[in-house]
Amino acid sequence: MSDAEQITKKFMYINRKAPYGTIYAWESLEVVLIAAAFDQDISLAFIDDGVYQLTKGQKTEAIGLKNFSATYRALGDYDIQKIYVEKESLETRGLTLDDLQHLVYEDEDDDYAEKDSIKLVSADELGKIMEEQNVVLSF
């Protein structure tokens, strides 16, 4: 099947859990990395405690778990360019975009310019984007 014939669907992965306390965040990230091989239109949403997955400065040596916060920075290499962070979830947690890692991708259509992957959206805006998806997966 050539690229032109291939059917591309819109997949959204919704992350609502904090990292480390439960396994959801890491499981979601692994599924995303695997799914990225299938050339689909992928987006990630971080809402509620999911926003904690993206915080800067995570250091896990003392709790003996793998620091997978570094792996979010590889998402650009996997052509994942749409990462939605819900605004209200950040605000109720006393966080701003500055508390999150700076995630980027290279835009092939714009001479490989580095662009921000994270987009801050309201719950209402996110709801509309969710409705546009063919497949929604929840973690």
Binding site: L33, A37, N67, F68, A70, T71, R73, A74, D77, Y78
Partner: peptide
Amino acid sequence: SEYQIAPAVRVLTKA
């Protein structure tokens, strides 16, 4: 060491 994962072949090739 930078990303805590071994990259997929496609990603490795590009990188």
